[in-house]
Design a protein around this nucleic acid. Structure first.
Lengths: 249, 249
DNA sequence: TTCGATTTGTTCGTATGTATT
DNA sequence: TAATACATACGAACAAATCGA
């Protein structure tokens, strides 16, 4: 029966599968199911949320389409983990001119506590001059310095972050956020322009000053569109570029 | 019944909904259902392909997710048309620094028949030196020249293309391809680098030579990953940039 | 304006296939 | 082998939007 369950009234026309999806997302945001973990089976979820298996499948299907859950036949459904492969394919769009897609080697240049400037505060939805970490790294590709990265994250989200822990991490920065703080990045917006290399950037990337670079301003978000980090990358285009796909997934 | 229909054998494990999806895509590629047109209702498709409505819905749902079909409750399912709004949101990723998203005004600079160079031929999957149209346009945003665009398309796909027809068109280039030749662009790949403006480009974009520009190399595809056009855009970053979203749709 | 037919959207249920443990 | 979990497929009922009589 459709109306007889009493869940839908004339004021609340949200479909049941959206409500279930919302509940699952809430559980994820609150850390009740952690990354990599198996979530309850579809019949179990159906009982828990008082819905049919088909309805649960529709909710889960949308979360799979959004790269938040992963289904594995015969095993179960799992919370997406930001392994190297996933990062490489989804959040790292810089590829070689020859099409090669390799993971960068990261060197920490500096890490300090600072206060958010107006632009950063706006992007991270913080008050102006809110405390942030300001982290600068150099990324090398194919043995050559290629990317200068400056990242700002709210101190509040990563209270005990320190240089040694950050340096000792295995894997990507987003993987570290996930393993150490349970924060999963699910989406990022990037605004890309071209700029000329200033002296310092040219020296670090081993270029001549004035050479054209890609400037990528990224803001990343976790569940529920909560911003996590704001960063600016300067990319040498000598042997690399940015790959974007439009249209279908 | 599942196996009793006799469609699935041990050698052919393609799910029925994939076969239905394939059949619909074939009809689209062959132009049997044209853009903007209503396709048969779900019960009709179910009868035609000897499947249940639920199975047809799954096939159609994937094509909707891929931006190929559009469902409208109470009206029917339609072949996606590349209206201005759709183009603006999906295939035109250049936005103002202030976030404004406006449609460019296009001026034709030149249009001639030529032969594909090696790179272009590779991207369009043509033989080297195959005949192509070579079209150069200048795009203005906010009244200022902002983008220099050089496009190559196979002569074979657009046999009677001529300058006056191209200039007289209404709407976007992809809309023109669709209205005039029944060719719908469903996907595009873009490879983005930063370059310095040469003298001619600087003059056309009203910049000083050497200024950094975005260089966007795009290849676009219609159904079944058939390439349609290969283009290079040079974008002034004075007041604009390229917007990319990573992660979920 | 109302009414009925059509079409997609949501929800439930059942059975069976396929992969994993 | 048996149990479990997701995948595919079918069918039924009702909701909601649209459109024409």
């Amino acid at each position: 029966m459709y109306m007889s369950s009493g869940r839908l009234t004339s004021l609340d026309r949200t479909p049941l599968y959206r409500i279930v999806k919302q509940q699952i997302t809430d559980a994820l945001r609150e850390g009740r199911w952690k990354h990599g973990q198996k979530i309850p089976s579809e019949p179990q979820l159906a009982r828990r949320y008082d819905a049919s298996v088909g309805t649960v499948r529709k909710a889960v299907g949308e979360l799979v389409a959004e790269n938040i859950l992963v289904r594995e036949q015969g095993r179960g459904t799992f919370v997406r983990t930001h392994g190297r492969d996933y990062m490489l394919n989804v959040f790292f769009r810089i590829v070689g001119s020859d099409g090669g897609h390799e993971l960068p080697v990261v060197t920490l240049l500096s890490m300090r506590r600072a206060r958010a400037d107006r632009v950063t505060a706006g992007e991270l939805r913080l008050k102006s001059r809110a405390p942030v970490f300001d982290i600068e790294t150099l990324l090398t590709l194919d043995g050559e310095p290629a990317i200068l990265d400056r990242m700002r994250v709210p101190t509040q989200l990563f209270p005990d972050l320190d240089e040694s822990g950050f340096k000792r991490r295995e894997g990507t920065v987003y993987g570290f956020f996930q393993d150490r703080y349970g924060i999963t990045i699910v989406r990022a917006d990037e605004f890309i322009t071209a700029v000329s290399a200033d002296d310092r950037t040219a020296r670090l990337l081993k270029l001549t000053p004035g050479e054209p670079l890609l400037r990528i301003a990224r803001t990343s978000y976790t569940y529920k569109d909560v911003p996590v980090d704001s960063r600016v990358r300067l990319v040498s285009c000598a042997r690399h570029g940015y790959l974007s796909t439009l249209g279908k997934a």
